[in-house]
Design a protein around this nucleic acid. Structure first.
Lengths: 257, 257
DNA sequence: CGATTCGTTGAATTGAGTCAACGAGAGTGG
DNA sequence: CCACTCTCGTTGACTCAATTCAACGAATCG
């Protein structure tokens, strides 16, 4: 039981420590996240080639940066465990959270166009990160077309995600925004074969509010309201979805055609 | 003189008709927009190769689609003249405008990851569009690394732009959003060597509101307020920036550190 | 274990939305 | 050329969802 717990947690929260054991030396071919992080398109030979260029750096602690805004762009990063928050500073010095990233997901592609990062990425808790130098990726990409396509694909996905967030921010109420975030996390947990209904939110209420364009107070109130209506069970950062359908219906209100 | 006029207009509004004349057959190397649309990185041989794959389709009329959401993804498109609005339908059937595109700019890369377009793109007025099959681009990209990098760069730029919009939507007031849009258009006009202070907004108030997450009424009120405060002169879609500094200062309020 | 940050709740305020009316232009047809 | 329609933009009055301000309890961390 205890060990199942550990396994459960292993790419959820306190993982990174375990990484010294197995994950830390794992090759991409063995990594159980590769279905997410790598393309199905990338085949055997590509994979071996990729392995030779991936740096498996030592784990970051909570608050450490993967990279910072304006850092030179050299690499992209795959999250092996832990959670990462991406953000940038607005002209007037406030923080704008632009995304949360989960194990198996890729960050850093924002830097390609200007050769420096346009956002900062910091670990929300202990995190293990694979670093992949972009030069290597580029040359691999010219050799393995499937690799190139995957990269294009990743970036294009990022664009689609951003546009969904744009819609969320410009059209939806506080309840809808928060429902969407919860559902997004639930879906991403599904991809990692974790519970879709019960999980720990790795980020603070402040970060949630910032990301969704709401104040902390509003976020808190919505959580409370959801709890009162038996849609969610909220226990600090632990949440359990009690009524998934309710959440879905909040996001897509009945079309009033 | 007449011909200069035509040339002048050629990437502004009513162009497309003239395109049969000169622009329509122009090669990328001659097109005066290539500094925007193509990378500085793309050198002579790449350029010639590119020319062989670009289709210069017949002009679109106002309201025609460049492509539609869920269309198969085959090509990306460079706008040679006219203006394009990108939008997608939300789950509950409403329209979300995701961007406005000007001559020299590239659209369609949203389709790469899913092999179908995630947004629709329609001409806001008569528009001439260069179509570039993505298969060709991919194979060119493996042959010309500078080309590949440029593509990555374009997509990465799109991500940065989207993230700026996200910030705008989640943190800024109606006045700030509209100021930002005006300034963005002004800047893009600068890149095309057009007036930065006096221009025609190619999109409707409704589209502006939709894009910025505001209602038509609010957009209209802000324009009126700006006019009253001698920041803008508004004449229907024609606007003249009277006080650029005021607009800038609206966007970046004094840091209250 | 105290300090500091984080989260929750309440009361008052407000910026933008909604509803409604109207005017200006663009296009159509007699 | 005028009358008619339809869409688009503007303005006003009212409403409301979310913010702001404030206070307090809970969690986390040296």
């Amino acid at each position: 039981m205890q060990s199942i717990m550990a396994e459960q947690l292993s790419d959820n929260t306190t993982t990174a420590l375990n990484c010294r054991g197995s994950a830390f030396q794992t090759k991409c071919g063995n990594c159980r996240l590769n279905a997410i992080c790598l393309p199905i398109a990338v085949q055997e030979p590509d994979l071996d080639a990729l392995d030779t260029v991936v740096h498996r750096n030592k784990p970051l602690r909570k608050g450490d940066h993967v990279f910072r805004e304006n850092d030179n762009f050299n690499s992209i990063y795959a999250i092996r465990s832990g959670f990462v928050k991406a953000y940038r500073l607005t002209d007037d010095g406030k923080e704008q959270v632009t995304g949360f990233y989960f194990p198996g997901e890729i960050i850093g592609m924002d830097g390609i166009s200007q050769n420096k990062h346009s956002i900062s990425a910091k670990a929300l808790e202990t995190a293990a990160i694979c670093e992949i130098p972009f030069d290597d990726i580029e040359s691999l990409s010219t050799r393995f077309p499937s690799m190139q396509r995957h990269l294009f694909s990743l970036m294009s996905q990022e664009i689609i995600q951003d546009q969904q967030l744009i819609t969320l921010l410009s059209k939806n109420t506080a309840e809808e925004r928060i429902s969407a975030l919860i559902l997004s996390i639930s879906d991403r947990n599904a991809a990692r074969k974790l519970s879709t209904t019960s999980f720990r939110l790795p980020m603070s209420r402040t970060d949630i509010g910032n990301y969704l364009g709401l104040t902390v107070e509003t976020v808190s109130r919505v959580f409370s309201r959801f709890q009162k209506n038996n849609i969610l069970e909220v226990n600090n950062k632990e949440i359990t979805i009690l009524d998934l359908e309710a959440i879905r219906s909040i996001i897509s209100p009945q079309q009033e055609a």
